[in-house]
Design a protein around this nucleic acid. Structure first.
Lengths: 167, 167
DNA sequence: TTAAAGTTTCAATAATATGTGAAAGTTTTT
DNA sequence: AAAAACTTTCACATATTATTGAAACTTTAA
């Protein structure tokens, strides 16, 4: 396999993985491209490499910056903006965890809480509903606590955890 | 809030959460509906409650059965098939973890391995590529090991883990 | 064996999500 | 201050994914 080919396949695969986990394909690809680039890239270069339009590149780069995993860089003497990705995979995971919790899990927990305050109704249907939404609430908040753990540690939490479990 | 309303909102929210995590909305909703139903439901009842077509119901129920989180039930003397959801939230999480690992993570790991065997090329670009794909490989397989942990324990792994970390 | 009751499939359609490109906006240089 | 270099926005186009509904299929009961 040629290097170019390998790179191509990697960008494709990573993009596909992204979509399966709720991150849009192009965004995942831009991020992947920046991760493997020794130097920061201009928007032109990104457009060229991924064959995408300026608008698309601009929007998704902004998205990545909002997620806090890509930075703008200004090169001295250069007008153009360059972009670089956070280089640390663990810090990447941490940031994604924080954001997804904030954007998706917290709102879901709020709804799960709300939804149990309906007017008195003691049908078995209502009973079961209360019970299951409670269970889901407990489960989701446990999962969220895990994400928080990842979040609050500088050190790599995943490895540490696995070490503990293996002993 | 009325019970009916609460139920409605729950089904909506759970469906939305599903889409954000790569599970199709209807599938998530059917599953949610079965979770909170005291009795198993026929396809008719599901169609009615979620206002979806027969085809849609059939396809997504099959999907849920493939994932191993919904079962068919035959009531004695009844012709029609009834469906019920796995009632245990932890076992649900376990099954989803197994399937997503098999369907998404394993293939990605294979690509990440493959992609580093390109023809000799010692450009800094190629070096960086090798390094980052290695780091990603390590990270993804660590994450996968975590999922496997969830998978191989009867007992609730998440709670156990958090307990360990808190002591 | 055939009608009835039910389920599945799949081509057509609808809904949603993504991407484009040109115009508008911004900043820097001359 | 106005032209050049670049970025952002957004209405529209395209692609992707989900849904429908009717026909085909399967199973059971009479």
């Amino acid at each position: 396999m040629e290097f170019k080919e390998a790179k191509e396949q990697f960008l494709q695969t990573w993009g596909a993985l992204g979509s399966q986990w709720g991150i849009n394909k192009t965004m995942a690809q831009i991020h992947a491209l920046l991760m493997i680039s020794p130097d920061s890239l201009s928007m032109e270069e990104i457009m060229e490499e991924l064959q995408i339009s300026r608008g698309n590149a601009s929007m998704n780069l902004r998205g990545l910056i909002d997620w806090g995993i890509v930075y703008k860089e200004y090169k001295p003497g250069e007008r153009r903006e360059y972009f670089k990705a956070d280089q640390d995979v663990d810090s990447l995971a941490r940031k994604i965890a924080i954001e997804r919790s904030k954007r998706e899990i917290q709102p879901t927990l709020r709804v799960l809480e709300d939804v149990r305050n309906f007017d008195e109704n003691d049908s078995s249907e209502a009973q079961k509903f209360k019970q299951k939404t409670q269970e889901l609430y407990d489960f989701v908040s446990r999962a969220d606590t895990m994400l928080e753990k990842i979040t609050n540690q500088k050190e790599n939490w995943v490895t540490k955890t696995i070490m503990k479990l293996m002993t």
